[in-house]
Design a protein around this nucleic acid. Structure first.
Lengths: 336, 336
DNA sequence: CTGTTAGCGCATTCAG
DNA sequence: CTGAATGCGCTAACAG
């Protein structure tokens, strides 16, 4: 491995001078600067971040922890985060918790030993509080994405889950649906709670009675779990429409319905939160509440970098991004 | 920041003893081991990877460089790679080149200064040779995924692009199609060349004349480029079927067709390479040559780690993974 | 403008 | 079984 000492020796200067040339710091005569540069190229010198970071206590490494890398919402978010990080000269350490608290904890430990400068993360749920406190204890700045964690004051970028859910359900109500099932995420996750609230609000504002037996809970990734739909269709009055609380759950719902021989939207209408990215463009079919995923990542990363680079500890900020109702062909007026 | 010296002082031992406890190396009496462990917990000690890596010359960091993080093929591949890396105790530095050589080069530079132990990468194209040589010059082990690079001997995990393409085209021929367009990637990418070869082979083996005017080229990500289809539909005898060389191109093709008022498969049949992951399950529609994306990542990572951890420089290995023809509803027999 | 000294946190080597 | 000295590659602080 070529070090600054190798360069220094060959260029007939001290290591310090080489360091100064590399970092454009201090005053160096143009002549020696050129000589050093030339030797650096000849020897294919590559600075060693490890050594540099050990001294500076800065790695210029950030970490992005998401909960599902196969979910287009998060991959689009990741691109936003990546672009913003790159623009600011930071590298990104990706990780994927799979909606699993234990995996999340493992990654937080990794992050701690890796000495990243900051963390951008979508927490798995309320219990992530412990992991966040862990980060804070070790003075690693972080920004939370997509899900609010009760009990801790943080920078956070959220979607408007309540309004989005209300829009979706009101759309169904306008179409005449009265028995609308909610296939929700776990109550440990703020978005699931708020999507329920929106669902409830839509009912209340329309003067509709809410039937709790129409609500089932699954993990946001557990879209292969078919038992939820069993439950719904064993009801005396089964639903005529289903609101899936995220895109992956919608995939499961659609597959289950298909397996049961139901036609969407002929037999039953389906809507969900979050869109499907480029892959979904093949057959834009589901009526969704679409969120600006790219901006989640981009804005979150900006918040993080601002906090990293500013000295003063200004207030925590909370950004709420709107969702957009996109009506497509998975919903139909209720036939009498 | 708590260091081993802090622990040592509080536990009344030397830093070296602490180091030994942490790494389970050397012989330590059970008594002092316990004492040290206790102090470590009390002080919330976290080992500093930077310092450790600087000494050991190993970061236990690997890098995964893919070309499109919004493509389900690559995200599924990423999960395979991540799982395999995690199992072996490595952390993963993700990056996304966007099919852009310059971005790829930037990331290779980053990788070099970060001193990762190894790299798993899907190259952007043949010209990536230069980037690979750069890695080799600096003795960073790497494994290539998905695309073959002429002019360099490497470990590589490939799909069988030729056979997959032939299967798709033969399927169309069996349905009676004779004018089959190929919306291909750029010729700088091995998969695009091989998919062309499969396309050509299918024609030849069926005794069909190949019409070069039915072939257009786009970047694998440039699915918004509509001009390609213009070209095809200005032909005197336009195609009755289209083979898109990857999933993203298929998205573009379908969108363009829809914009032109064509119905798939009623007016025209469409097939493509690569499937669409969970999001595609909503409406399984396209007839595809599906590749085992997860295995690409998993096997590639295994090759990489084996090479990292074995001392001897055994031969380079080439793994070819089969693709599977999945016939769905985007193809129809040619109506007379 | 350039060089010397010291130290970032840890592990290897050699002594005890 | 445990400790002291040394160095990984680099840069901050001080000298010249």
């Amino acid at each position: 491995m070529i070090t600054i000492y190798d360069i220094a020796a060959k260029a007939g200067v001290s290591a310090m001078t080489v360091s100064r040339v590399i970092n454009n710091t201090g005053r160096i005569s143009e002549k020696t600067r050129k000589r050093v540069r030339k030797v650096m190229e000849e020897l294919h010198y590559i600075p060693n971040m490890l050594a540099r970071s050990l001294v500076s206590q800065k790695t210029h490494l950030l970490s992005l922890l998401i909960t599902d890398i196969t979910n287009p919402f998060y991959t689009t978010l990741a691109r936003g985060a990546e672009d913003a990080a790159k623009k600011a000269g930071y590298r990104l350490l990706f990780a994927n918790s799979d909606e699993d608290y234990a995996k999340e904890k493992d990654y937080i430990d990794m992050i701690l030993t890796t000495r990243v400068d900051g963390v951008l993360l979508a927490p798995t749920g309320d219990h992530s509080l412990e992991n966040l406190n862990q980060l804070r204890k070790h003075h690693i700045p972080f920004v939370v994405l997509d899900r609010e964690i009760p009990g801790i004051d943080v920078d956070v970028v959220l979607g408007d889950s309540k309004a989005g859910a209300r829009n979706l359900v009101e759309h169904l109500i306008r179409l005449g649906h009265r028995r609308i099932a909610l296939v929700n995420g776990l109550q440990d996750v703020s978005t699931a709670r708020l999507r329920y609230t929106g669902y409830e609000e839509a009912h209340r504002l329309s003067g509709l009675q809410l039937d709790e037996s129409l609500i089932v809970h699954l993990g946001y990734r557990d879209f292969h779990d078919d038992s939820a739909l069993d439950q719904l269709f064993q009801l005396e009055q089964p639903p005529t429409a289903i609101f899936a609380a995220n895109n992956m759950l919608a995939v499961g719902v659609i597959q289950s319905l298909r397996a049961r021989g139901f036609h969407v939207p002929g037999d039953i209408s389906v809507v969900c939160f979050d869109d499907f990215g480029p892959a979904g463009a093949i057959n834009p079919f589901l009526t969704v509440a679409s969120q600006p995923a790219y901006q989640f990542g981009q804005l979150g990363m900006q918040l993080l970098i601002e906090r990293l680079e500013s000295e003063n500890n200004y207030e925590f900020r909370k950004i709420m991004l709107p969702s957009q109702l996109i009506v497509r062909s998975s919903t139909l007026p209720l036939s009498p």
